[in-house]
Write a protein that binds this DNA or RNA. Structure first.
Lengths: 267, 267
DNA sequence: TTCGATCGTTCAGAAGACCGAATGACGTTG
DNA sequence: CAACGTCATTCGGTCTTCTGAACGATCGAA
């Protein structure tokens, strides 16, 4: 065992300097199983991750022993385990914004009668943290944990409007993806919308991620939060006048929640 | 052919034979941060997990780089990251039972007007996988991902009633924990309740985990599933007669969902 | 300011995990 | 019925990560 040890940096193809290999693989497995419907065999995952089967085998064993992945009765197909669900919902419970938002969202949903969401910017996307259903029969689909492109949602635009155009340009993936015929993909038009939202105090979405759905959103905090709340409804129930009404209600709710957060934050 | 087969690790104090150390630690971090409100420093976690700080440091770095844990602006307090939420909700989307249950739960909630739950047995506890709110102003608190002791819930008893008394005895932690004055903690009484539930086809909970809440539950599948659906209401809205009515509705819903599952399962 | 405590971070030796090929167990096909 | 493809699993040698102690940064108090 001579082996002068040395730095060991020499040969690695493209390894990040400070990453624990097995740790990264555990997370990659969770993300892979979470991405699709997720029912993969060991061989499939090994191929997809470019990792030797034998190495992955030991990792999956560890994960299975702790309930983070489940294995078919046949013993050949992995899926996410219950621990993943428990930890995921714990994220919501441990989050100050989500915890405090409950009553505010209830009140806003009660006042408007429409679907209400709390969302957080995560890279180029927005994640729903909480929602309240509309009282009407005709409802939009949404779910906590769901991700939508930020540039095509009221929530995303409300948060992005807080930043400089240069910062926005840096944060998003260009060109912007088109989700519906009405999605704004032109950079200038998009930045103009953000400027308008900043002046007006609220951001809009007019069928840009779901056809026929309009949405009004306001960011929380004062210039540095990544969160926003919104109210959405079908166009048939939200003309321009109603949109202004709702915008005022959402603005008040956002202000009230921001105040709550500032009171509890510094503690 | 048993070859040389170097048998046991002579020296390891009490290490599981086949576990990847870093992998287990990643999962333990997630569980630790998910357990409480969860805002822990590196030193606190290292102490709580009995792991050297330096080892944990590298792991947390890896987790942070991938968005699985967040770090305070101050850089001294870790909490769960957004990836945890995304993966957790993916568990629900990838689950056949939860996905197919939607319409059935909607119908049952509509028919009874009361809170409806889908739950799964996980060790000694039951986890809520889906819920529908009551139409009434007086509601019970519940949340997807929440865990309750199986022995004190209708859902848990419905699932456990499928097993032999010996199997039940093996699965639960004795003595049974008392959650309310009405929680059944006597082993004989508990097993008698399960026997009754098996004969009758549905399990009951009468204020055993939440004072004043009654619940009717029926297991899915035919003798080997770990899932059940239930309907809960305050005692003021659920007398014995109403309970029988609701039991019939829940039984029909459970049967209908089981049929759906068998049709899609073998595929 | 100075001290002290607490925290995150770094580094070389020591321990353990990773890798690739070979094995056994299925289920499927010709 | 037998040969094949695919699957999970095992095994030692090599290389990575883990460890414990020392370092540096940060904050609060004296």
């Amino acid at each position: 065992m001579e082996s002068v040890a040395s730095a060991g940096r020499g040969r690695g193809p493209e390894r990040k300097p400070e990453e624990v290999k097995s740790a990264a693989r555990v997370l990659e497995v969770l993300e892979l199983l979470g991405a699709d419907g997720a029912r993969l065999s060991l061989a499939e995952m090994a191929a997809s991750m470019a990792v030797p089967k034998s190495s992955l085998h030991a990792i999956l064993r560890t994960m299975q022993a702790r309930g983070w992945v489940d294995l078919d009765p046949s013993g050949t197909r992995y899926s996410l385990g219950l621990k993943a669900l428990l930890t995921g919902t714990a994220y919501l419970e441990g989050d100050d914004v989500t915890s405090l938002a409950g009553p505010v969202l209830d009140a806003l949903a009660e006042e408007t009668g429409e679907a209400v969401h709390l969302g957080r910017l995560d890279g180029t996307h927005v994640v729903y943290l909480a929602k309240r259903e509309s009282r009407h029969a005709l409802r939009m689909y949404s779910a906590v944990g769901r991700r939508l492109p930020a540039h095509a949602t009221g929530l995303g635009k409300a948060v992005l409007a807080q930043y400089d155009p240069a910062e926005v340009q840096r944060r998003l993936d260009w060109p912007l993806e088109r989700l519906t015929p009405d999605t704004v993909v032109d950079p200038e038009e998009f930045l103009a919308q953000l400027a308008e939202a900043r002046l007006r105090g609220w951001a809009a979405d007019d069928g840009e991620n779901s056809v026929d759905i309009r949405c009004v959103a306001v960011a929380l905090g004062s210039g540095q939060g990544e969160d926003a709340i919104s109210c959405s409804a079908p166009k048939s129930r939200m003309d321009d006048a109603r949109m202004e009404e709702i915008a005022q209600a959402v603005t008040e709710a956002a202000h009230s929640l921001s105040t709550l957060l500032k009171r509890l934050g510094p503690h």
